[in-house]
Amino acid sequence: MSEHMLLGAGLGAVIGLILALTGAGGGILAVPLLVFGLGLSIVQAAPVGLLAVGVAAAVGALLGLRQGIVRYRAACYIAAIGVVIAPLGLWLAHRLPNTPLALGFSVVMVVACVRIFLIATRELHHGKPAPRAESRPCVLNPLQGRLRWTLPCARALTFTGMLAGLLSGLLGVGGGFVIIPALTRYTDLNMKSIVATSLAVIALVSTGSVITASMAGVMHWAVGVPFAVGAVAGLMAGRQVAHHVAGPRLQQLFAVVGVIAALMLAGNALG
């Protein structure tokens, strides 16, 4: 294995580890790592990052299915919408210059990471928020343990799928930072189920985007395969220690690293 492939596998392991420890937050760092670590452009890095994040998310989702905590109907619905919209994002990505694309990615990263930091800070100071009393569009049927499908629920999940699919194709992110807040806001699922369902959506949407990128001839498999293998290894290792180290402090650290990476990416694009 060449030094380049070993570096790719190592960077992938970092993404898998973050994915395991932060609950689907690692995908947003995949593109900056590929840009700075392997010298790829945003357009080149996006499908490679999606391949790694998608494979690692699939492993996490399968483990969640075994535990019975994946809401697979909701995951398949959100993913189906995302897969339909993702090619539009990919089409836009190949028609935008690298500089505005990098700046746009940096803005998305900063917004997502600031939100993660604020939520973690509130949890440190006030503990986990109490369950909200107001009605949500998607609630579990207590007798069946499944989500009740209503028009407001379908509307909320459709919007979530559209946004996740667009960002997946355009910026090469799995969309966990969109899906997890959406499921938290629109459903009454517990956090373990939300994360597992999010991983299932990420795996499905990423698969669709990778297939689209391959058909368009823009998938760099020589970089993508070792990166994906490393991500799976990092995910499995991270799951072994997640219950010891995961928490709001780690979320804060991840957010700070994400903001720094975003600023470096923006500086590199402008420079």
Rank of each mutant, 00 (worst) to 15 (best):
M1S: 11
M1K: 06
M5F: 11
L7D: 04
A9P: 01
A9E: 09
G10C: 12
G12M: 07
A13K: 05
A20T: 05
L21V: 06
G25R: 05
G25Q: 08
G27S: 14
P32F: 14
L33F: 10
L33R: 03
V35D: 00
S41K: 08
V43K: 12
Q44I: 12
A46M: 13
P47M: 09
L50V: 08
G54E: 09
G54W: 04
V55P: 02
A58E: 02
V59S: 12
V59H: 12
G60V: 05
G60L: 00
A61T: 02
A61Y: 03
A61W: 01
L63V: 05
L63C: 02
G64W: 04
Q67L: 11
G68W: 07
R71P: 00
Y72T: 08
A74K: 00
I81D: 02
V83T: 06
V84N: 03
L88W: 10
G89N: 08
W91K: 14
L92K: 03
P97S: 06
N98V: 13
L103T: 01
F105H: 07
S106W: 03
V107I: 13
V107E: 01
V108H: 01
V108M: 03
M109E: 03
C113T: 13
T121S: 14
R122Q: 10
E123G: 07
K128R: 15
R132S: 08
R136A: 15
P137C: 01
P137T: 08
V139I: 09
L140S: 06
L140F: 06
N141W: 12
Q144M: 13
R146Y: 06
W149K: 09
T150R: 14
L151Q: 09
C153M: 14
C153E: 07
L157N: 06
F159P: 13
T160Y: 13
T160Q: 06
A164I: 11
L167T: 11
S168K: 00
G169I: 01
L170D: 00
L170F: 00
G174I: 07
G175T: 02
V178C: 10
I179S: 00
I179A: 01
Y186P: 09
N190A: 11
V195S: 03
A196F: 10
L204D: 07
V205N: 02
G208T: 12
T212D: 11
G217A: 07
P226D: 05
F227R: 14
F227H: 08
A228T: 05
V229M: 13
V229I: 15
A231M: 03
V232Q: 07
V232K: 07
M236R: 13
R239T: 11
Q240F: 11
A242H: 07
H244K: 15
V245S: 07
A246C: 12
G247D: 09
P248T: 15
R249H: 15
R249A: 14
F254G: 00
V257H: 02
V257F: 05
G258W: 00
G258A: 11
V259L: 11
A262F: 10
A262Q: 08
L265N: 08
A266K: 02
A269I: 02
A269H: 10
A269V: 03
L270C: 15
